[in-house]
Design a protein around this nucleic acid. Structure first.
Lengths: 341, 341
DNA sequence: CTGAAAGCGCTAACAA
DNA sequence: TTGTTAGCGCTTTCAG
């Protein structure tokens, strides 16, 4: 048998000859408990190293002090940085963070949503997969009035939950405009799948900038693939198979920007003289490669904090008051100019 | 009032005219429940979208299905990568992961440990701060027989918990030996604080390699500071203030190796011709900088998985059986040779 | 194979 | 200001 060392409020009630209710209240700083008893109770609690069993108090209130977070992968730069901010802020407000990784698989995301609900998280934050188009697995949170916030990777179509995202349209526009102003007459674009708001918006920004600068849009110079190094390499081969090369490349993430740069270097295409490159995310590697790559800073920490702030507001607001605050929050981005463009 | 939509086993019992006990057992695949009722129950459960309330079942069993993880910071390369592996593996075994960041502050670590205990985690994994020397805040886990596994950053002195760590001594040795074999006669070392097992062991490896290759050990060429870019820059200034420069530098993390490399480049010191550099961790940036940096791969994913494996074993083994498996697990490291050394 | 009932630790009416 | 009591939803003896 598992022997028990954990002490409960019952133990401390007995030791002090008080009712358990009084002890509970004292521990929770209830206003109408005398300072004297509060002091006594807290001392005894310290003495026996009492820790509130949050499973029990959560069960009572039918909600835990855990916040769920579902993201594609912890180790991606943007998300790792966002999580750091998210967890620190949540902790300051007394919440724990439960993390689940979808690995960009909608099925996994669904499973995790269910698990999060099972542990009765007080709220849920989601950066969804590239391929999530069906969001019904989150309905249960809506139905039960559990605050739900999407950030970064958000539903493309309407879904009745709070949304926090970077200004990807603006980012795409700035990146492309920067290339245009540097003199590029022909600009290729490596986009990800358009099922993802990120790529969709950056692409829209790209198109708008081309139009504004009266540059030609060519279907053969735009690519929609998952932005892996392998895909980027394949595209680079295609792009530089025969002249004229595009004078600029706007890659919708830094990994592919780096791949393009390395490919160009290997082919003896001078960057930025013969080819200008702009990436997206300000991944630490872009600052360190030669030449360093111009890219778009998204301030992942700030995005994370905005998401938490929104969640806390929902948490405070209580049930059935959500309608009013569904306006998406759009956080600013910034072009970081470096030598590559 | 918060209206309720969540259905419980009571609901499904009522709907099926069964006892709640039967429903509970059916849902848990209890052997002596007829297949017929199991089927009925599960169908009804699906129909009403039942999700087990793990707070309640946890309370009953006095333990949750959550595993706690305390680390210095999610966004550090090593830990981000380890977490990815950890969470994926835990999920496969039906556990959730609760993450807390100590920000390398022992006080915070203590607070988190307490919070983790409060939510009655089934087990706890810890990579402690650089400065933790007092581990008593983990005693409560030991006393209550909650599996506790330290990984990567582990107690320097004996503490009765399972330990998983990389072979830092070997890593330090290989790094230094590599410099020696490349012809460096004088090798400086940027270490972190020796209160941390990582730096202590790598430093010991450094010293051992010097001895083996009959190279001089000079106090002025060894530094013990937190390995931040600022500190590394300061040290670089000191190191290259006057000749003769050391011919090799072994930096105990990649961030400072990168800083040293950039400093050398700025000073016109040719790498590797005039100065050879080896880092530690195989941070993605080391592969991309020019010249790419030789470093020690720690296989963070593998370390994470070993830690989980150990934890799961403890979880299965049940109470009071821990003594036997306290032997530390030491995972292999590998020197990744690149152009810098 | 199924049911009745107790209780995990805590909070919140309701009383006093 | 404090005590009594009734559960929160689930698992698990103990009885059929």
């Amino acid at each position: 048998m598992q022997q028990k060392h954990e002490s409960t409020i019952v133990d401390i009630a007995r030791a002090l000859n008080l009712s358990i209710a009084t002890v509970s209240r004292a521990l929770n700083n209830h206003p109408k408990i005398s300072e004297a008893t509060k002091k006594k109770v807290k001392e005894q609690a310290d003495a026996v190293e009492y820790r509130r069993n949050t499973l029990a108090s959560g069960l009572r209130g039918s909600r835990s002090n855990n916040i769920g977070l579902i993201i594609p992968r912890v180790s991606m730069y943007f998300h790792a940085t966002a999580i750091t901010a998210i967890q620190n802020l949540l902790h300051r407000h007394g919440y724990n963070l439960i993390i689940g990784q979808s690995n960009d698989a909608p099925e996994m995301e669904k499973e995790l949503a269910s698990a999060m609900f099972s542990s009765r998280v007080a709220g849920l934050m989601v950066a969804s997969t590239f391929y999530t188009t069906d969001y019904t697995h989150f309905d249960v949170f809506i139905r039960n009035d559990i605050p739900l916030v999407f950030f970064d990777r958000v539903p493309v179509d309407f879904y009745p939950a709070q949304v926090i995202r970077g200004d990807d349209y603006q980012g795409g526009f700035m990146a492309t405009a920067h290339l245009a102003e540097a003199g590029c007459k022909t600009i290729a674009h490596l986009s990800g799948p358009l099922s993802c708001n990120l790529y969709k918006d950056r692409y829209a920004g790209y198109v708008a900038a081309l139009r504004q600068y009266k540059l030609p849009f060519k279907k053969e110079w735009v690519f929609f693939n998952e932005l892996t190094p392998a895909n980027a390499t394949r595209i680079a081969q295609q792009l530089f198979a025969r002249r004229p090369y595009p004078q600029g490349v706007f890659a919708s993430n830094d990994t592919s920007a780096i791949t393009i740069l390395e490919y160009a270097r290997a082919q003896g295409i001078a960057v930025p003289e013969a080819l200008r490159i702009v990436g997206y995310s300000n991944d630490p590697r872009t600052a360190i490669i030669s030449p360093p790559i111009t890219t778009v800073e998204q301030f992942p920490g700030r995005v994370g904090e905005e998401a938490v702030t929104a969640l806390l507001a929902l948490l405070k607001r209580g049930p059935r008051k959500r309608e009013q605050i569904l306006t998406p929050v759009i956080t600013a981005v910034e072009l970081v100019k470096r030598a590559s463009a």
